[in-house]
Amino acid sequence: MSRRISSGNIIESLQNVQEKHGFLPRDSLIKLSQDTRIPLSRIFGVATFYHQFRLEPPGRVTIAVCMGTACHLRGNAENYEFLKRFLSIGPGRSTSDDGLFSLEKARCFGCCSLAPVVKIGDMLIGKATPRELQRAISRIREEILREEAARETRG
């Protein structure tokens, strides 16, 4: 299909990079700039403009808190504050100290009827409450730690 539309579209190239690494490593952006002959500043300009792109490696599990209207009205702002405290994520940071979880605010998932919605990894939690989130996160944390322990004993 049209070469014009696909060629030079940094957004799609960046999406591919992010898919591969989980974030946009600086080196990849420099390489992209060299390959496409698009100035690095422009690439960074695009990368920082869109919500999808992250320049920091994410935690093992991403927790996305929907900040849509319905979710806000049904208490997701409180859930977010709770998660920040529960995961002890300091101001200006997005990843918990153990590097297991990263927390982000997300735009509407389009599941407003299940508000408030929190997405942990690929799992959507509808009608979320702090208690429920706490349970889910503790379970996932245990799972990860157990897995790691198992790998260590094997290794």
Partner: peptide
């Protein structure tokens, strides 16, 4: 062609 937005309202 389907193009995926990178998210910006």
């Amino acid at each position: 062609r389907v193009m995926r937005s990178a998210g910006a309202f």
